[in-house]
Amino acid sequence: MGSKRITGMTIIKGIVCAILLIVALFPIYWIVAMAIRPTSEMTGHISVIPHALTGEHFKQLFIEKGFGSSIVNSLQTTLISTMISLVIGLCTAYIISRARFRMFIKKPLTYWILLVRVLPPVAFTIPLYTMFSKLNILYSRIPVILACILINIPLIIWFMISFFQDLPVDIDQSAQIDGATEWQLFTRIILPLVLPGIAAISMLSFMYAWNEYTYSIIFVQTPRNYTVPLTLAVLNTEDNLTNFGLVAAGGVISVIPITLFVIFAQNYLISGLSSGAVKE
């Protein structure tokens, strides 16, 4: 057991770590590297590190392609759908988690929510499209907002039930003895206790809504309503050099929210994502 062998192992592990990081992060680096280099550096010999820096792609993206409105659309649909799903989902998860509320609908609803998580989007899209068209809202932002709500409510309920269940029922009982109404108990006592869970699932919901593509490409009818992923997908029509910079610049902008989450709240985010392994 010489120290030499340990050093050897350490070096090998360091090399493996480096390889893993390069494989995982290079495509992310590359989109940044393409976004900030002038178009002239995208032909001929492409250097891994850009020689000159430029903001021309970002400028062009906002001025010529109206990317600002895509960001506004994305933020709007994401924030509105996340808020609505959270309010609705938290209320339902709490009721399902408490045995003292006896309702016939709890069990079928729980099954149904799980089923919705599993079913493919195409199971719902065609009648929804018809319905939105008959309601005359196909040209508004409502369809995509509703789609994000439909994606996120099951996730929020499924995730939050276990958080509510982990709170001892004694809390409920002592609050009731003190004369608190059910609503006061829920909003003033229960919700503050599950704030970490709410933080984690809010970020996940935001992320899923922000990244949403499948429903959007089917429901959105006019470029006026394009979200960030849709605008990016449309920019990517041909193997066209002039678009490389634009696509890369848009790609960089599309990862800003998740970058902020990782920097400022990675523990919540990771606990949210890995909860599936520990609890079911």
Partner: peptide, 10 residues
Amino acid sequence: LLPTVTVALS
């Protein structure tokens, strides 16, 4: 964590 669209484009 990245948007699938962004991954595909990169």
